[in-house]
Design a binder for these strands. Structure first.
Length: 508
RNA sequence: GGCGCGUUGGUCAAUCGGCUAAGACGCCUCCCUUUCACGGAGGAAUGACGGGUUCGACUCCCGUACGUGCUACCA
């Protein structure tokens, strides 16, 4: 008896795909999969002035990267095509007209200037924002105030008009939100939203309702910023005679700035040094690129997992979930009501967790581009060994270079300061002498190298601890990295000796 | 200004009337490691505030404060 579950993600192609957007997709996707339903992607490109070329392709690519593939979309099509609202333009007017005929909508001929004037004139200290509603519509030029013949004359003459919804007076509009429960609005405070614009395109308000109906959407999840316009949508479902088919709503909490207040925006990312978009976004109009999580070195699984936990949790202590587990355990009812401040440190922690649980061969392939970018092209098996050794200190993919560059190339800079004040003659002599010993070492393993060093130390009255730091800096360039002898083993005999000699020469 | 939504440590958060208020991130201390990291052991909340209801409230109700969203022929 129950209808097949159908959900949708309906972005407008105006720019990069924001964290919050991806999370909305994710929750939609998880819900659809959990219920054996369909996940559709619908492009809401009704505002031609804000349309950005390439944005749609970018969104598709983001979804692909995240593994959130729609079942129906402008590219793969589907039974309810087209999936771009601009291509559905002709469908909307019919419904707007239907609303006019039933008395729930009307034509309005007010120009932008007239609207502005009205808002200015009626503005008071108490009401800083005046809306076009049951109160003001009687003072404007519309089919409610104008004689019928004049209205048809204006239309016949091609005078631009919009169609507005006629919001009823003194009604309480109630609807149930899957996350927030019952939400109540006073219809007197709801304005007569434009449904059909002068250019013939629908506004979001008409388009969502018509398309959700036509596409048989059963559950509509969207950002909390839509809550205030929900009563308009509700009224539309009712007036169009579709109320029985209205989807169940869930308004998702906002993702907020880590510091200060407000919604997280692209600017905050730039300012605080972390991405806000899923992938790099190039804005052709401004000729600038905004960084994304993908390019910063996040694994898509970690990114998705992190997003899932931002506003939802399973009620257990588990934080790491595979997509399959998320599908199984996610429930919209457990989504938080309050907005969450985005914490980039926690995001990085998720990535580190995924790096640790990824096998070294896969990891080597993921790290390789970042190493090639620096001009090195290590052998595959060698890279896998290096990855195994340094992965626990890597959080983002580029860290494989930062933490392992000395495996692929001789360090360019040497942090002499790290050991120079304790450098002395015996140490100088030890290293000069020891490299000869190393040269004849047949068993080149970390254990053998260490044994060789330990055996050679007493002759110079030195202890193991005396040479550890200098040796490390000689091989690595700084005070970091895995075990020194292990590094020596991996970079090989010739390179080890060469690096020691090089620094010795510098110090002489 | 109006309306909507929210409010548990710095952050994400568990708790759905019994709390000595989980856990994670981050931070700090110590251990391990003669590097760094990992790992291990610890440290830090008078549950925004004020009233109710109740044997008992972080949990329910009301008010206040604060935050946030909307208030376009943008979504």
């Amino acid at each position: 008896m129950d209808k097949r579950v159908r959900v949708r993600f309906a972005p407008s192609p105006t720019g990069g795909l924001h964290l919050g957007g991806v999370r909305t997709v994710l929750y939609n996707y998880l819900f659809a999969r959990a219920h054996g339903g369909d996940f559709v992607l619908r492009i809401e490109d009704t505002d031609q002035t804000r349309f950005v070329k390439g944005a749609e392709e970018y969104i598709l690519e983001c979804l692909k990267w995240c593994g959130l593939i729609p079942d129906e979309s402008p590219v793969v099509g589907g039974p309810y095509a087209p999936y771009r609202q601009s291509e559905r333009k002709s469908m909307y007017k019919e419904y707007a007209l239907q609303l006019i005929n039933s008395g729930h909508a009307y034509y309005a001929f007010d120009t932008t200037d007239e609207l502005e004037q009205m808002r200015k004139d009626l503005k008071t200290d108490e009401h800083s924002s005046v809306q076009y509603d049951h109160n003001t519509r009687t003072k404007m030029r519309n089919s409610l105030t104008l004689p019928a013949d004049e209205v048809s004359e204006l239309i016949a003459k091609g005078i631009p008009y919009v169609i507005r919804i006629k919001v009823p007076e003194n009604q309480t509009i109630i609807f149930n939100d899957m996350i927030r429960g019952a939400i109540t609005f006073d219809s007197n405070l709801v304005d007569d939203k434009v449904l059909l614009k002068a250019d013939g395109m629908p506004t979001y308000h008409l388009a969502v309702v018509v398309d959700d109906y036509l596409m048989k959407i059963t559950h509509a999840f969207r950002g909390e910023e839509w809550l205030p316009s929900a009563p308009v949508h509700l009224l539309l479902w009712e007036y169009l005679g579709w109320i029985g088919d209205m989807p169940q709503w869930a308004h998702l909490p906002l993702i907020l700035k880590p510091d200060g207040n407000g919604k997280l925006s692209k600017r905050d990312g730039d300012r605080l040094g972390f991405p806000v978009f899923a992938m790099n976004w190039y804005d052709p109009a401004k000729d600038e690129t905004t960084g994304g999580f993908r390019e910063m070195g996040f694994l898509p699984q970690a990114f998705v997992n992190m997003l899932a936990m931002l506003g939802w949790n399973s009620g257990t202590e588990q934080e790491i979930f595979s997509m399959e587990e998320l599908i199984q355990k996610f429930s919209i009812e457990r989504v938080h009501k309050g907005g969450a401040k985005f914490d980039f440190e926690k995001a990085k922690w998720f990535n580190n967790q995924y790096i640790q649980q990824t096998d070294n061969i896969t990891l080597a392939a993921l790290a390789l581009p970042y190493i090639k970018e620096k001009g090195c092209n290590p052998d595959g098996d060698f890279l896998v060994k290096v990855v195994a050794l340094i992965k626990d200190r890597c959080t983002l993919l580029p860290d494989f270079w930062a933490q392992g560059h000395f495996f692929f190339a001789t360090p360019e800079t040497i942090d002499e300061g790290a050991f120079k004040d304790k450098w002395n003659e015996p140490k100088q002599q030890f290293f000069s002498s020891w490299i000869n010993e190393l040269n004849s070492l047949s068993d080149w393993t970390d254990v053998a190298i260490e044994e060789s060093a330990v055996a050679h130390l007493p002759a110079f009255s030195l202890k193991k601890g005396d040479i550890m730091l200098p040796l490390r800096v000689m091989l690595v360039g700084g005070k970091y990295g895995p075990g020194v002898y292990h590094i020596a083993e991996l970079i090989g005999k010739a390179e080890t000796i060469a690096r020691i000699q090089k620094v010795l020469a510098m110090l002489a």
